[in-house]
Design a protein around this nucleic acid. Sequence first.
DNA 1: TCAAATTTATGATATAAATCATACTTTTGT
DNA 2: ACAAAAGTATGATTTATATCATAAATTTGA
Lengths: 230, 230
Amino acid sequence: MKEKQEAASDNNILYRYCMPEWRATVDANRQLLVVKKGQPVFSEQDVVKGVFFIRWGKVKIHQRWGNEKELIIRFAKKGDMIGYRGLGKGKVYPVSATALEDTGLMYLDIPFFEATLQVNPRLTYALMDFYANELEATEKRVRNMAHMEVKGRVAEAILMLKDHFGVNDEGYIDIRLTRQDMASFVGTTYETISRTISELEAEKLIRTSDKRFALLKEKQLARLVESNAR
Amino acid sequence: MKEKQEAASDNNILYRYCMPEWRATVDANRQLLVVKKGQPVFSEQDVVKGVFFIRWGKVKIHQRWGNEKELIIRFAKKGDMIGYRGLGKGKVYPVSATALEDTGLMYLDIPFFEATLQVNPRLTYALMDFYANELEATEKRVRNMAHMEVKGRVAEAILMLKDHFGVNDEGYIDIRLTRQDMASFVGTTYETISRTISELEAEKLIRTSDKRFALLKEKQLARLVESNAR
DNA sequence: TCAAATTTATGATATAAATCATACTTTTGT
DNA sequence: ACAAAAGTATGATTTATATCATAAATTTGA
């Protein structure tokens, strides 16, 4: 892997909330790994053996449904923790994680991670808060899925992507997504996404290029979200 | 309130996971209250001032959308905690809680509850696990909303209700729900629910009476859930 | 570098479920 | 105990979006 990527500083919930004395223990127990674009970090039904922290790159957390369909639960970037699904031995992942680009990860096995939680109440507290907030966001998604139509959900998805990944110099949101991934994130088909994106472009609310999105009229897009009850 | 109801033993995550020494402190700081059927425990946009534990009765956690529509996020019964949405001052509820029948609650204010978390790492740990599991269940709901059609979602909803509330002597799930509540839980309209329930009854998979459901062929109902990709 | 595979755009058609409408039943509050 | 309000069943119509189909554009890897 490239130097620049390897040099990325780790800044994740674990490093931020565990006691400084424990940090060296973490470093002694961690493993570093690289997953190539398109390759799985873990897959549904795999036994949970550890937890991952993204050092660089991007990952989608998704769930298969039947043969062809999938739903993207969330996207993860540098600093994000993935793969921890609560306590309990012998658990299997209810979701898959797949690299959207070459991605560097740090891995801790479950016994060590849970020992870390026991020793660092502040970390446990921060993690509880993290899950409580994720839950709130996911509940909102259920509601949107139930009551908002596709166009509003697409608008909201684009705004979420902007919040999560930020924009680059040219104003494009810093993640490349296929129409299929976008469809899986919004919960619709790629044909419908294709049409909806074309429509939003025709209305000059967004621009797209190289599988990226740029916001042209963010406020109007946000208004679209609000007024899109079914 | 009736004697029998008042005599209910409290068994909730707080009592289960906080240190015995702390229990008396909790009891000194708690308030007990009763909310009548149909009345709110708290409402969307209220400032979060405390957390509630249900002693007896049943509550729905729901979110309004526009004027008429709502989505029921979850149901809560005896022992369940409601109203805690992570740390942070000045937070407002993103959801409402409304009593489905007369309900007795214990209330703790946020400063005391968060002090309790600080003092009882095991409780924090249990709460983190609780939220991680809730998150997993809610993610599954997002997926079902995206890919499963109404009939499958209704079947799944009925199975969830059975798990959560159990069945009485006559085989009926121990909660009374209007068609509108059922629709809000499944994420559809009451007309569609009415039709779907009629259909499931005609197929002899369920029976209904007095706003309650009884399972006649649980396995077939579960199979319906599996095979109901859109 | 080129052929194969994947991704995209867009049109035509089918369909699940929303909406509109009406009559009937049950629950609630005074 | 009764009138008003809320809830339910079911039919008719509309609509958003899935599905099917085709062709063009882009990406991939040998």
